[in-house]
Amino acid sequence: MSVLLALMLLGAGPAEDVQVAVLSHPIEKGTRLERGDFDSEARAPAAARGALSADDASGMEAARNLTAGNIVRRSDLMKPQLVRRGEPVTIRIVSGALVITSSGRALNGGGQGEMVRVVTTTTNRTLDGTIDGSGSVRIAAP
């Protein structure tokens, strides 16, 4: 006898559905999610496991294309990308009170506090730095 059948015979029905946030429309990779991108639907508890609330997902970016009606989980999202591969960046080399600023190009992308490689436009030198804002990379002086 199955567990579900045994529970039903004992008077315990199947688990009640729970309300979860689902996408109201398709989302493309790299799109930042907002509260308005979600609707609420009833789903089975097993299917809802790991689902993020609309508030938890807001402000994050889609790590891949997401379809309408899907539950969003942590693996579907990533930190907002403040620097994207190939885009121009401002490089700041900081040593105490001394700050040298240069323009450059990102060799990879990332979010706040992540490491990124950049190449300076003036010297063509490749440097490793930390993303500290939108289009801004900080290089710690040796």
Rank of each mutant, 00 (worst) to 15 (best):
L7W: 08
L7Y: 12
L7H: 11
L7K: 15
M8G: 02
M8Q: 14
L9K: 15
L10F: 11
L10G: 11
G11S: 02
G11N: 02
A12N: 09
A12W: 10
G13P: 05
G13L: 08
P14K: 09
P14N: 04
P14I: 04
P14Q: 09
P14C: 08
A15T: 04
D17S: 11
D17F: 01
Q19Y: 04
Q19G: 04
Q19I: 04
V20C: 11
V20D: 01
A21Q: 04
A21D: 09
A21P: 03
V22D: 00
L23R: 00
L23P: 00
S24P: 02
S24N: 14
S24W: 05
P26Y: 00
E28P: 00
K29H: 02
K29M: 13
G30R: 01
G30C: 09
T31S: 14
T31M: 14
T31E: 14
R32S: 09
R32I: 14
L33R: 06
L33W: 07
L33G: 05
E34D: 09
E34H: 10
E34M: 10
E34S: 13
E34G: 11
R35M: 11
R35H: 10
R35S: 11
G36H: 06
D37P: 07
D37Q: 05
F38H: 00
F38W: 08
F38P: 00
S40M: 11
S40N: 07
E41N: 04
A42I: 02
A42S: 14
R43F: 10
R43M: 13
R43K: 14
P45I: 01
A46W: 08
A46R: 14
A46K: 14
A46V: 13
A46S: 13
A46H: 12
A47M: 12
A47T: 12
A48D: 09
A48I: 09
R49Q: 13
R49L: 12
A51N: 13
L52E: 13
S53E: 07
S53V: 06
A54N: 01
A54F: 01
A54G: 03
A54M: 03
A54L: 05
A54P: 01
D55Q: 15
D55H: 07
D55V: 10
D56F: 10
D56S: 15
S58N: 03
S58H: 03
S58A: 15
G59Q: 06
M60T: 03
E61T: 07
E61I: 07
A62T: 12
A63D: 00
A63Q: 04
A63S: 08
A63R: 12
A63V: 04
N65S: 10
L66N: 04
L66I: 10
L66M: 14
L66T: 04
T67D: 14
T67P: 00
T67N: 12
T67E: 15
A68Y: 03
A68Q: 13
A68T: 06
G69A: 06
G69K: 07
I71H: 13
R73I: 15
R74P: 05
R74V: 08
